[in-house]
Design a protein around this nucleic acid. Sequence first.
DNA 1: TAGCAGTTTCGTACAAAGTACGATACGGTC
DNA 2: GACCGTATCGTACTTTGTACGAAACTGCTA
Lengths: 224, 224
Amino acid sequence: MERSVSTGDTPRGRQRLSRERVLDAAVGIADAGGIGALTIRSLAQELGAKPMSVYYHVAGKEAILDGIVDVVFSEIDLPSPGGDWRSELRRRAASARQVLRRHRWAIGLMESRTTPGPATLRHHDAVIATLRAAGFSLEMTAHAYALIDSYTYGFALQEAGLPFEGPDTVAPVADSIMEQFPAGDYPHLVEMATGYYFKTSYDFADEFDFGLNLILDALSNSLS
Amino acid sequence: MERSVSTGDTPRGRQRLSRERVLDAAVGIADAGGIGALTIRSLAQELGAKPMSVYYHVAGKEAILDGIVDVVFSEIDLPSPGGDWRSELRRRAASARQVLRRHRWAIGLMESRTTPGPATLRHHDAVIATLRAAGFSLEMTAHAYALIDSYTYGFALQEAGLPFEGPDTVAPVADSIMEQFPAGDYPHLVEMATGYYFKTSYDFADEFDFGLNLILDALSNSLS
DNA sequence: TAGCAGTTTCGTACAAAGTACGATACGGTC
DNA sequence: GACCGTATCGTACTTTGTACGAAACTGCTA
């Protein structure tokens, strides 16, 4: 699946519109400028069309939001119910995290979208299938499913909310935060920052594997 | 002219405005009608004031959003670094989940707010303090912290996204979803639904403890 | 008491955004 | 060409955030 944002002045396409083209352009705009940059007008411009033309292909802005969330889900690798369940779930979790990193805005939308699209449902179906194939009971599948997804989305949520990204970008941001507040108000936060985050060129992204492995290990124990 | 009435069933207050009163009213509106209902005008009306009056107390809508996220954090019970760390963290996680249930809209905002307020920082400080007091190393504290929070927020995120709430409300929603899509497209989802969710008057909320206990147990093992 | 200097509230007005409504252009079939 | 479903668009109305400056209010001093 490929998508490219037109970088400059030239609108992207001039062919016929379609629901798919509209949603792809919407994703591109949100990626480039945040969900706030996605307006019917910017969308139309990106498509080389006029605002009202968009409405022929989608019911309204709400439908666009539902649509692009489903597009995001469609980009996540599905686990295969056949293989080793732990590595399959690890792969799909890693994929989910990467996808949600590309499309930060998606996490914020999940909370408000209550009508899942086909890709979303297919995705959930595949995860459940993998757990069932691994031998989990219905009850344990429900437990494991909620647990793994909570962790994955929650991690992505936190990652999206971080004002920095990657190692070595932590310090300046932390400095500016600390300057704002009375010294000594958050001693343990400061201890973590100075004693660990700064010292080791910390990358929050690395935390993901630790938690996921812990969870999968614990679930694995409950299997036997 | 305006009289300060006793009934108080209409606009909420008539006293002087303040940042705090503005933020409280904003939270109330978002709780009642979703974040979309929160406009400067609705806010002013709730406060018994005119739109532009609000701007004296907050810099703009973005500042309001930052502010109400911090209000939400301020409502979460802090763990005490002294006591039994597992029950302390369980208590604060349960509190966080409840708070985020009261203020569903907050989760969606977290993704976009990158300037934490004082309550948010104090909250993080307390969690870190509790982990450190429990004997975790700096490194393990970072791991545990990311893990627990990811789970907690992720769970709340999923809960907020569910189109139903509580037991016995699952079925009708699931029905309408299933009707929309070709039969047999999501066999495992259907199996879970018919074989488990429907059968046991399933309440997603109960999943929370399972995952949290699993995580705390696993972390506990790593202590000794 | 009158006057004055903050402090707080508000009236007016404009730009950006979603979209209802109906007209227009297009593309194929008879 | 006449006709018809599909796709695009022009116009215009409503809702929202907020800039700008005036008005009202508060407490204080002369």
